[in-house]
Structure formats: structure tokens, C-alpha cells
Computed example of a mutant assay.
Amino acid sequence: MGLENFDVIYYFVLLFVAIFAGFIDSIVGGGGLITIPALLACGVSPHLAIATNKLQSVFGSLTAAFTYYKSTTLPHLIWGVFFTAIGAAIGSYGVLFVEDDSLKIIILICLTFTFLYIAFKPNFGKEESKAKIKNIKIFHIICGLTLGFYDGFLGPGTGSFWIFVCVFLLGFSMKQASINTKILNFSSNIVALFIFIWQYKILWDIGLLMGFGQIIGAFLGSKLVLKTKGHFIKILFLIVVALTIIKVSWDYFIK
């Protein structure tokens, strides 16, 4: 299915959905929560929606990564990119063959814990704190493989998980975490995209159209983060995580 099979209105709907998703994703992650349901609502099959979503999300994560470039702590991210890429390759290959219901309940539990922990910890991420994991390689081996796999397998909420672990385990502020995780997000997106190109198919016309929207949204969102102190990030983070919990719960218990 390509754009030639769509009503003209879908061009505009998917473009504006991508702009909004790129804006949100560049700040707190969770863009897939917006774009994948939009693709499904337009009649795209689930696996094809996931594959096409990777194409458009690459543009958003790359734009945010470039915009944040001077503010990132690049040396430690090299390890993160490497292990995240490995995890994403395994996850994106596995999603083509595995039913994801069992994984969804695990994700639901983790998201709920994340939401409750941050909601009831007022100072979480306001300032830098003492790191719980001193060895940065160990952090990236564990989190890179785990979150890279999840991003390749399902995706929605990956950016939110990255922000949480960076604040909780590395002692970053929410703003620091938001900035540093975009390169990791891009690495898992691009690897997953290559796997889907190799093993499956992608709606290139839709993906490129939405990719243009992602560039606009990600640029605006990342510029907003850099120009402010980032105090709004926690509130937006909680909103996105709550919506992700609702979406995953709906998929698991209702559908």
C-alpha cells in the first residue's frame, strides 16, 4: 500500500501527525505512540506500520541528535551506540517472527513503575545527582542491549525509558538525559530500519513524507529544550508515559 491508495486528506493528516510526534519525541521520547496508531488508523498493517515508522522516525532522531550535538557528552555515548545497535538488530529481526503479547505485559509493568517512581519523587531529574552505576561501559551494555532490543521489537516509549535510566542510574538531570539519549535513539532507529529494508518492506512514500514532518517537529522541540531550563520536561515526560501505559494496556487487555 502506498500513498496512491490513500485519500488526499491522509497526506496532510500523516504530515501533521509526524510534526507533532517529532516535537514530542525530541523532548521526552514516545513519538511512536503517536505515529504508529496513526499509520494503523490509515489502514496500514501492523508489521508494515512498524517498519514504515522506523523510516520516518530516523529523520526525527537524526535532526534532534544534530541539534543537540554540542551539548552531548559524546565519549561515553560511543559505547551506548555500539550496544544499542546490537540490541536493535536482534529486536527488529525478531519482531518479524515473534508475537509480542508476552513482551507487552513486561513493558506495561516497567512503564507503570517508571511513572509512579517519578510522580512521587518531586526532585527527580531537577538537578544532577550521584550516579548509581560508576562504570559507564556496564551501563551501556545492560541498557543499550535491553532498550535497543525493545526499540527494534516494539519501539513506543524507548526515549522515555532512556531518559529514566540516565537520570536514575547516571545521575543526569532530565534536560541532560533528554539531550544525550537522542544519539542512542537514532542508532537503534537506523539499525532497525536497515533490518526492515533487508527482511521486510517499507512504504517509502509515506515514510519520507512523515520524515519531512519529523524534521520540522524535532528541530522545534530540541531548540525549545536548549533555550529553556527544562523544568517542563518532567511534566511532559509523565504525560507521555501515562499515555503509553494507556496505549499498551488497551492493546494487551482490550484488543
Rank of each mutant, 00 (worst) to 15 (best):
I179A: 08
C166R: 14
F196C: 04
I136P: 00
A192I: 11
F194E: 11
F161G: 01
G125T: 08
S173L: 04
F139T: 03
G155C: 12
F172Y: 15
G152M: 13
F161N: 06
W162I: 07
V167K: 06
S188P: 05
I183H: 01
F164G: 00
N180T: 03
F124K: 09
L184I: 14
K132D: 08
S188I: 11
N189P: 09
V167A: 08
V167E: 05
I190F: 13
Y200M: 03
Q176V: 01
L154F: 15
N180C: 07
F124L: 14
T181Q: 15
F139L: 12
K132N: 12
K130I: 14
F139M: 04
K137M: 12
K175W: 09
K137Y: 13
G144N: 08
Q176T: 06
E128A: 14
F186C: 00
H140T: 06
N180V: 05
V167W: 01
E128W: 03
L170S: 02
F139P: 09
I142E: 03
G171K: 02
N185C: 10
G144F: 03
F186G: 04
K182S: 07
L169Q: 03
S178F: 01
I163Y: 03
L193P: 04
T181W: 02
S187D: 11
A192K: 05
G157F: 12
T158N: 14
K132I: 08
N189G: 07
F149E: 08
F186H: 06
S187E: 12
F164H: 04
K126Y: 08
S129H: 05
F153H: 13
F139C: 09
K126R: 14
I197G: 05
I163G: 10
F149C: 11
L147E: 05
G148E: 10
I138T: 14
A192G: 15
N185T: 10
L147C: 08
K137D: 02
C166T: 08
I163T: 13
L170T: 05
L147R: 04
F186D: 05
V165S: 08
G159P: 07
Q176C: 07
C143G: 13
I197L: 15
Q199L: 14
G155L: 11
W162N: 09
N185F: 02
I190A: 08
I183V: 09
G148W: 05
W162R: 00
I163E: 06
K182T: 05
I190E: 11
P156K: 07
